[in-house]
């Protein structure tokens, strides 16, 4: 799973840093536990302003998860998307 976190001015102001910190923390903690789908890999990338806030106001922070754009992303929303994918093998089988 590839997550791109925008760290432009608007997104940094609205807490992009805390989203990155939460994802890094997940990588160090829950994603190291048993039960995680062995093929699951979390790739966190930071990006310069993705331009979303220039098209539409009040959308920061912006996070892109495997190509899907999240406006007004919250850390709990993104963390939950990650964990749903990471523990996919348990939920579906």
């Amino acid at each position: 799973m590839k997550i791109v976190v925008c760290v432009g001015s608007n997104c940094t102001m609205m807490g992009a840093d805390s989203i990155i910190a939460s994802l890094e923390n997940l990588k160090e903690t829950i994603l190291k536990k048993e039960g995680v789908n062995p093929v699951f890999d979390l790739d966190i990338e930071i990006a310069r302003c993705l331009g979303e806030c220039k098209i539409k106001k009040a959308v920061s922070p912006v996070v892109v998860v495997d190509g899907v754009i999240y406006h007004n992303a919250s850390r709990e929303e993104i963390m939950s998307v990650v964990l749903d994918a990471a523990f996919d093998n348990i939920l579906t089988k």
């Binding site: 760290v7 432009g8 001015s9 608007n10 940094t12 102001m13 310069r48 302003c49 220039k54």
Partner: peptide
């Protein structure tokens, strides 16, 4: 934080 607010108000992207 206040400086960040000024960057946002002026639409300045320091990283670019």
């Amino acid at each position: 934080e206040e400086l960040m607010g000024m960057f946002v108000a002026k639409e300045i992207e320091p990283a670019e």
